[in-house]
Design a binder for these strands. Structure first.
Lengths: 342, 342
DNA sequence: TTGTATGCGTTATCAA
DNA sequence: TTGATAACGCATACAA
C-alpha cells in the first residue's frame, strides 16, 4: 500500500526520496551534495547513507532548469578527425574528467555559418563556458559569444581582440620561423604547399611570405595551395604541381605534417634526395615526423596543452577568479631534423 | 508599468511569451514547434511570426525535464585521437546534424571501469540513444545499458550477443584475411606486431594465429605485442624487437597502420627491401597507406559508415521501427598494394 | 484543433 | 544550520 508513484517519471529516486529516507528537508539534501561545508556533519552522513542506499543520481536537466545554468562546456571545432583539434579536445576532456561538467562538442566543418548556428544551439542551454577554435568568428557569432553570459575561450591562435580569453600561439610567427629555418639552412627556392587554407593556414603563409620577402627571395609562383581538405595523398599531388610549375624548387614549407609526409613519399618515388635536393619542413610535429626516413623538421605546437589551459582559464573565471592575463601565448618549437640538414 | 518579470530567469523569451504575443495557448505553441501538422495553418503562421520576432529558442533542459527524455545521443569511445574512432564519431555527427539531437561523447580511455562510470553519468540524463564502442562491456556496464531505457548500439565489432543492436565487422576475420594474404603471396615467417592490444586487437591476433596454424607455420616467437598505446614510433621499435627475436622474419601483419608505417620507415633506414625481403600489411587503411613508398597493403574498414549506420538504427528504433536485422556486419576490404607484391 | 490544470526534479528566496 | 514555498520552462493528460 505504498503511496502511488507520480504518474510520470521513470521511477528513479529523487531528491525528495532521499530526503524522506534521511528524515530531512529536500533542500538540505541538495545542499549536502553541492556545498557539504554548509551542512552539519551528522546530517551529511545520514544523507550520504540514504543516497548510497537508494542509488540516487541527480538529474542534470532539473538542475540546469532550476539554476538557469547547465554544467556543460560547449566546444566548437572545425574538424573532428584532424589530429590537431582532436588533441585539443582530448586536453579539454582530461582536464574536465573529475569535474561535474559535461562536454558538448560541435563540428563547424570550417564554416562560419555553421559555427553561428551551433552557437545559437549551444547558447540555448546556458552553458557554463564556451571554448571555440579560432579568432575569425563572423560578426553574428561574435555577438552570440559576447552575450553568452559565460566565460569564453578562443583557442589555437592568439590575436589582438579577444571576446574574453585566448589560448594559442602566433601562426604567422610559426610560418616565418619555418621559412627562416630553410633559408638559414641554405635553401633558396623555397615553396609553400598548403591545403584547406583556413585562416590559420593563411597566417602561416603570410609568415612564410614575410620571411621570403625579407630575404629578397619571394616569388608568387612558389606558392601552391588548394581549399581542398588536407591529406597525405594531396600533399604528394600538390608537390608534383609545385615542381611542374617551378622545377628548380629546392625546399618546401608544408602547411601541415600530412602534406609534408606526402612530399617525402613523392621524393622517394621520384628519387629526389632529401635533404640534399629538397628540404622539407612540416607543421605541428606529429609523432611520425621523428620516425620517418629521413626524419622531418617540423614546428611543434602544443595542442593538448592548449586544451588544458583553456579549461583552466574557464574554470578560474567560473570560480570568480578571472585571470590577470587574458591572452595566453603557448608558443611553438622548431624541431630540426634530417629533412633540412644538408 | 509592465508586470514585474519573474525574479529568476535570464530574461530570455519563453513559450508563454510567444503564446501571449501570438494570442494562443502555450501548449499550442509547443505543438506548433514539435508537430506542425497538428496545428492549423493560420495559428502556425502567427506563432512562427511571434517566434521569429521574439527570437525564441526552446530550452532543451526544460524540455528534457518535462518529457523525461533528453534529445541527446550518448557516445562512448575509448579514444578521441585515434583516427579510427574519430571517423566513427564524425559519421555520427554528420548523421545527426540536421536533427534536434545533441551529442555527448565520453572518452573511456580503454577502461571498463571508466566506461561504467560514464554510463552512469550519461544514463542520468535519460538520453534518446546510446552508442558504445566494442562488445566487451563489464557486467556492470552491460546492466546499465540494458536498463538505459533507450536504443543501444554497440559499434566497431559484431558478436553473438548484442545488448540491443550492433554495427561493425569481424576483427578475427580481418586478421585471418591479412595473414592469409601474406601466406598466399609466398611469405612464410610472418610476424604479428601489435600495440595497445585492446579486445579488437586481440581478436585480430587470434585471426592471424588461426591462419598461421592452418598453414602449419605458427610460432609464438613471431608475435610481438605491447599494451602501450600505438604510434608510428612504437611500430619502428617493435619491429626492431621482432627482428632481433626472429632474424629470418619475412613478413609482418601490423595491428594498425601507424605500426605499419613505423615498420616501413625502419625498413628504409635499415635498407631492408619491401616487399622483397619483408612483406607488410596494415589495418584500417588510412589515406597514407596508398601514398607511401612503397604503398602498403592494408585491410580497409568502414569507420565513417559504422557511425552513420549506428545512428540510422538508433533513429529507426526511436521512431518505433526497430530494424529486423539487429546485427549489421559492414565487413572489410583487403587493399593489395606494393608492400606485399613480390 | 485548442486549451486547462498539473507535474517534471531541482534550486533560489526568504524566514526560522 | 535548516526548512517551507515558489519558481524554472516545458510537455503530458484530459477535457472541450
Amino acid at each position: 500500500m505504498s503511496k502511488p508513484r507520480s504518474r510520470r517519471g521513470g521511477g528513479r529516486p529523487t531528491l525528495a526520496d532521499v530526503a524522506r529516507k534521511a528524515g530531512v528537508g529536500a533542500i538540505t539534501v541538495s545542499r549536502a551534495l553541492r556545498e557539504p561545508g554548509r551542512v552539519s556533519e551528522d546530517l551529511r552522513r545520514q544523507i550520504q547513507a540514504a543516497v548510497d542506499e537508494l542509488g540516487y543520481v541527480p538529474d542534470p536537466n532539473a538542475r540546469a532548469l532550476a539554476s538557469a545554468r547547465a554544467e556543460v562546456f560547449g566546444v566548437l571545432v572545425p574538424s573532428l578527425t584532424n589530429n590537431v583539434f582532436a588533441e585539443v579536445v582530448r586536453g579539454i576532456y582530461d582536464s574536465l574528467s573529475d569535474s561535474p561538467f559535461r562536454i558538448q562538442i560541435g563540428n563547424t566543418h570550417y564554416s562560419g555559418l555553421e559555427e553561428e548556428r551551433l552557437l545559437q544551439v549551444f547558447g540555448s542551454q546556458r552553458p557554463a563556458a564556451l571554448i571555440v577554435a579560432g579568432i575569425d568568428q563572423t560578426p553574428g557569432a561574435r555577438r552570440l559569444l559576447e552575450n553568452a553570459g559565460c566565460p569564453v575561450v578562443q583557442v589555437m591562435e592568439t590575436g589582438p581582440d579577444p571576446v574574453d580569453m585566448m589560448v594559442g600561439f602566433s601562426h604567422f610567427d610559426g610560418g616565418r620561423t619555418a621559412a627562416g629555418h630553410l633559408l638559414q639552412a641554405g635553401y633558396r627556392k623555397i615553396g609553400f604547399i598548403g591545403a584547406r587554407m583556413d585562416p590559420r593556414s593563411q597566417r602561416r603563409l603570410a609568415g612564410y611570405r614575410a620571411a621570403m620577402e625579407a630575404a629578397g627571395l619571394f616569388d608568387p609562383r612558389l606558392i601552391t595551395t588548394t581549399p581542398v581538405p588536407s591529406s597525405v595523398t594531396l600533399g604528394r599531388e600538390l608537390f608534383r604541381d609545385a615542381l611542374a610549375k617551378m622545377p628548380t624548387l629546392d625546399g618546401v614549407f608544408c602547411n601541415n605534417d600530412d602534406i609534408a609526409l606526402g612530399v617525402l613519399f613523392e621524393c622517394h618515388r621520384a628519387s629526389i634526395d632529401v635533404p640534399k635536393q629538397i628540404g622539407i619542413v612540416g607543421f605541428n610535429d606529429l609523432d611520425m615526423m621523428q620516425v620517418s626516413f629521413p626524419s622531418i623538421t617540423s614546428v611543434r605546437t602544443h595542442r593538448y596543452e592548449i586544451g588544458t589551459r583553456a579549461v583552466a582559464l574557464a574554470l578560474a573565471a567560473i570560480a570568480g577568479n578571472p585571470p590577470e592575463q587574458r591572452i595566453v601565448d603557448l608558443g611553438f618549437e622548431l624541431m630540426r631534423r634530417e629533412s633540412t640538414a644538408r
